[in-house]
């Protein structure tokens, strides 16, 4: 059991690494938590599939520092994200805003769900229709079976 726990902790090691340099952190844990939450919303533009909190790129480090400075100065999440958004555009937001260009992106889950429901309904209707229409042979055989069971 002990060994198992140790193994699990070992597996989690990379996650500890992602927390970042301890001397980057803000002394106030509430503000640090807010800064981290903001950082997770912002894309690192160098290694584009990571947030600035997860990335080790120089630019991500600079942006982390900038976010922390603004949080320490008392800005809220919207204000900090707006500041970065004004400079790097929609691309920096890991949660892109709904615009004409991102419509399809946002609508995909709904479209997929609607498509799935349509397929299910179509199949059920067909199954019902087929069940209703027995061929004369089938009807005869069914009648025979019924008689046999009785």
């Amino acid at each position: 059991m002990k060994r198992w726990v140790f193994f699990c902790l070992l597996l989690a090691l990379p996650a500890w690494g992602a927390v970042g340099d301890p001397n980057e952190r803000l002394p106030d844990p509430a503000k640090e938590a807010l800064a981290r939450e903001i950082g997770r919303e912002l894309r690192c533009l160098v290694c584009q599939n990571q947030s600035i909190e997860d990335s080790d790129a120089q630019l991500a480090r600079d942006l982390r520092r900038l976010v922390r400075e603004r949080v320490a100065a008392g800005e809220d999440q919207t204000a900090v994200i707006r500041f970065v958004h004004e400079r790097y555009g929609d691309f920096v937001l890991l949660r892109p805003p709904v615009t004409a260009a991102t419509m399809l992106l946002w609508a995909t889950p709904i479209l997929a769900l609607g498509g799935g429901i349509a397929v299910i309904m179509f199949r059920r209707r067909r199954a019902l229709a087929e069940a209703a229409a027995l061929s004369p042979d089938e009807a005869k055989r069914l009648a025979e079976l019924d008689r046999g069971a009785a």
Partner: peptide, 8 residues
């Protein structure tokens, strides 16, 4: 550079 939106 950040104010200009430079990323590299």
């Amino acid at each position: 550079a950040i104010d200009w939106g430079v990323y590299g």
